[in-house]
C-alpha cells in the first residue's frame, strides 16, 4: 500500500500531506518532463519554447502563487519572477527548459508553476525569507 508521493501531492488540489515523510514510491529516474502531473494545466510535458512561460496567478493549498515575465532586478536577469503570498521565490531556468527554485534546488520541474507548487508543499505554511 503506497502512500501519496510529494509529486502526487503537488498535483492534488486538496488533501492532507500527513505521512508524506514516510512516502517513497517516486522513481529517481523519472525525467523532469513527467515530474508534473498531467492534469494541472502546465501545457505539453517536455515541450518548452524559448520565450518566457505564461504568467499564472492562483491559490494553491491556501497560498497565492504568481508568476510573470520580469524585467526587475532578478539574479542574472532570469526574466521571470515567481511569488508566494507576495514574497519572491528565487527561481532558475535550466538549459533544458526545466525549472528549479531555492526551496527545491536539486530537483527540476517542468514549469515555473510546478516549481511554485512544489515550494508551497515544501514550505508547509512557512513564509519565505526575502531574497538577500
Amino acid at each position: 500500500m503506497s502512500r501519496p508521493t510529494r509529486r502526487h501531492a503537488i498535483g492534488a488540489t486538496a488533501g492532507t500531506l500527513a505521512g508524506l515523510a514516510l512516502a517513497g514510491t517516486a522513481h529517481a529516474s523519472t525525467p523532469p518532463a513527467t515530474a508534473t502531473p498531467g492534469a494541472t494545466g502546465n501545457g505539453p510535458a517536455g515541450h518548452q519554447d524559448h520565450g518566457a512561460p505564461e504568467p499564472f496567478d492562483e491559490v494553491f493549498q491556501g497560498r497565492r502563487i504568481q508568476g510573470a515575465p520580469s524585467t526587475g532586478h532578478m539574479h542574472h536577469g532570469a526574466g521571470y519572477a515567481v511569488r508566494i503570498d507576495g514574497q519572491e521565490l528565487h527561481v532558475m531556468r535550466n538549459a533544458d527548459g526545466t525549472w528549479i527554485s531555492v526551496v527545491n534546488h536539486y530537483e527540476p520541474f517542468a514549469t515555473p508553476r510546478a516549481v511554485a507548487r512544489a515550494a508551497v508543499v515544501e514550505l508547509q505554511g512557512a513564509a519565505l525569507v526575502p531574497l538577500a
Binding site: 510529494r6 517513497g24 514510491t25 517516486a26 529517481a28 530537483e107
Partner: peptide, 11 residues
C-alpha cells in the same frame, strides 16, 4: 529532514 520521501532510492 524527510529521508527517502521525495525520492525512494539512493544511488
Amino acid at each position: 529532514r524527510a529521508l527517502g520521501a521525495a525520492v525512494a532510492q539512493l544511488p
